[in-house]
């Protein structure tokens, strides 16, 4: 039960962090910051001034005007350009280790420490 609550809180916190991360900036900026400029070296669409990035920003604006929400826009871009374009990899069978491995290591290390020290 305790673990369940803990897991739920963590997910809730991560979720709300997403919200705060997205605060203050406009929609296009916010989305383009999470996209890789495919023709640049390690730049986001937001930071780049290349033709690709500029047309990308227009594309995102159009999608927003069409009334698409964030998720629909990301899905559209992913289906068009592949997972490579988003900086925020979704959790699926390919990336589950990426997300979970650091957490497992933390828990493992924590247990190790608790076993070494005496509580009293």
């Amino acid at each position: 039960m305790k673990i369940k609550i803990l897991v739920l809180t963590i997910f809730y916190l991560i979720g709300s962090f997403n919200l705060s991360y997205a605060a203050n900036s406009e929609k296009v900026d916010q989305i383009s910051k999470n996209l890789r400029c495919l023709i640049c070296q390690g730049q986001s669409v937001y930071d780049s001034q290349s033709d690709f990035a500029l047309s990308m920003k227009i594309l995102i604006q159009n999608k927003i005007d069409e009334g698409k929400n964030d998720e629909q826009i990301y899905d559209f871009l992913k289906s068009k350009y592949g997972e490579w374009i988003v900086y925020d990899p979704e959790i699926n069978k390919n990336t589950v280790l990426l997300w979970v491995l650091p957490l497992i290591l933390f828990v493992f290390g924590g247990i190790l420490i608790l076993r070494k020290v005496s509580i009293k």
């Binding site: 997972e83 925020d88 990899p89």
Partner: peptide, 18 residues
């Protein structure tokens, strides 16, 4: 498996900040 993914700021923020 030939899949290209990008790991950028949102990933690090989500894991490190909490």
């Amino acid at each position: 498996n030939n899949d290209k993914i990008s790991v950028g700021p949102p990933f690090y923020h989500k894991l490190i900040v909490p």
